[in-house]
Amino acid sequence: MSLREKGAWASLIATAIVFVPYFRYIFRWFASGELDPVRVLAAFIGATVYLTILMIAVGIVIGLLSRQEPQDERDVAIEAKSYRIAYTVLSTTGMLAIVAIVFLGVVPVPKLRNEVLAPQFLSQVLLLCFVVAEAVRSVTQIVCYRRGS
């Protein structure tokens, strides 16, 4: 397994370790009406710090255990392909989120409308779009490296 494929696995696993429980809590708080801005901000800062520390630690371990390799043209091509697909996912999920927000904004249930349009919820929907796109980027890289393409 190449250094960059290991990096893609590390990124995918770290993203899953941090953001799967994160969004579980976020949507649980949303469902129970406990999604207040301070709580969301604290969770977001905690998740970001945790992800940063995790990625640095894993990066150091991979660097120490792997042979150092130059980034070659195939790595660049795979990276470009993964970003292209991730951008498509990001723009699609972002557009779907906007459409959903617009429709939910006109539902005749004021409580639901106010909760869905609250900044602390909208910010998490946008964050989810970015996290999904990041996961797709890592998965694309892994698939390309596995297939040898």
């Binding site: 190449s2 130059p70 070659d72 043209e73 195939r74 790595d75 297939r147 040898g148 393409s149």
Partner: peptide, 22 residues
Amino acid sequence: VGVTRQTIIAIEGEKYSPSLEL
């Protein structure tokens, strides 16, 4: 040629077409 072994494997397996320079 300044690439990774995985790239040579991919080229030999005809799964990746190298650039003109490579």
